[in-house]
Amino acid sequence: MKAQVLAIDDSRTIRSLLAATLEEYDFEVTTAVDGVDGLEKFAETSPRVVITDINMPNLDGFGVIEGIRGGSVNKTVPIIVLSTESGADLKDRARRAGATGWIVKPFDETSLVSVLKRITGI
């Protein structure tokens, strides 16, 4: 069975890019348009790994991480934060919130896949 990835980003472009890249590497990708949608899809699909944007409407990436880590199901799923913001404090906060890894946009497929591999072993 293919490994499920949940990709949460409010940008359609980024969602398309993630889906296209990951599907090429044989992941099965579910996308969500914001944090609330992300948490819903998380509950539905129970993915192997979550990739999330930080700055999103409705519920931001921190909210997503907290929602997942504070939940009861699949709470230790690897969560990779994907953001153009590389400010140190932001990373710090993501780390404290419980993010597993961090990728700065724009990403290229090699780095994305290699981070995924290092975090999930897939």
Partner: peptide, 16 residues
Amino acid sequence: DLSVEPSPAASAETPA
């Protein structure tokens, strides 16, 4: 463009 957070700060405190 790919950078990895090497910050040592990580605690169980309630995330901000």
